[in-house]
């Protein structure tokens, strides 16, 4: 579809062809789609394990720390919001503000990791481990995998902050920032799927 429409984002793009624009570059999209597929496989494993062990999966979420899961969901969503605001600031030719928003996202990433660490400790004190039953096996596999993504995603944000502070990005050229933002949103998407599956739905 080649209808010309107003862009909602980025004041430098006044019009675009609806079907042409892709934020970021091809490499980041290959990575994002690969990662989304990886998480999809984990979710399919969860669904299959659940239909084969319904009682275990009914009890499992009740013994997890809902507060930790909720806090981390709020933190992930907030970090994604900060990243969006960082992109807006860069487009408005304000790299210093962009950098500050990104530091906010890094703080969120670190907070997420700290909460997840204490959640694992709390689980351990309750006697919940990978070998407790299949629910906790799946829970640890999926959430630890996500934990790693948040870790290296946070490191990527710090790298982008360095690039901003050293003047490598401008209002018109900041593809590295966009790529990192897309990747971070992907990590957020994985978590908002994990949260209801592991903590909410019985």
């Amino acid at each position: 579809m080649n209808t010309i429409v107003h862009s909602e984002y980025g004041r430098e793009i006044k019009f675009h062809h609806r079907s042409d624009r892709v934020p970021g570059n091809m490499a980041i999209w290959a990575a994002i789609l690969a990662e989304m597929s990886e998480f999809a496989i984990m979710f399919i494993v969860y669904f299959l394990a659940k239909v084969h062990h319904p009682d275990i999966f009914q009890e499992g979420p009740a013994r997890l720390n809902t507060l930790a899961g909720t806090a981390n969901t709020v933190i992930m969503l907030t970090s994604s919001f900060f990243v969006v605001r960082a992109v807006f600031s860069m487009r408005n030719n304000n790299p210093e503000t962009s950098s500050r928003w990104l530091w906010g996202a890094v703080v969120c990433g670190v907070l997420y990791l700290i909460i997840k660490y204490f959640e694992y400790q709390w689980n351990s004190a309750q006697g919940l481990a990978t070998e407790t039953n299949i629910f906790y096996g799946v829970y640890y596999y999926v959430t630890f995998n996500h934990f790693l993504h948040v870790g290296w995603g946070s490191a990527a944000i710090v790298w982008v902050i360095y690039r901003i502070n050293t003047g490598n990005y401008t209002k018109d050229e900041h593809e590295g920032l966009i790529n990192m933002a897309l990747y971070w949103h992907m990590i957020d998407l994985a978590w908002i799927t994990i949260f209801p599956l592991m903590y909410v739905i019985r």
Partner: peptide, 9 residues
Amino acid sequence: FMELKHSHK
């Protein structure tokens, strides 16, 4: 957030 609403199909 990812700004895909009006992006490549």
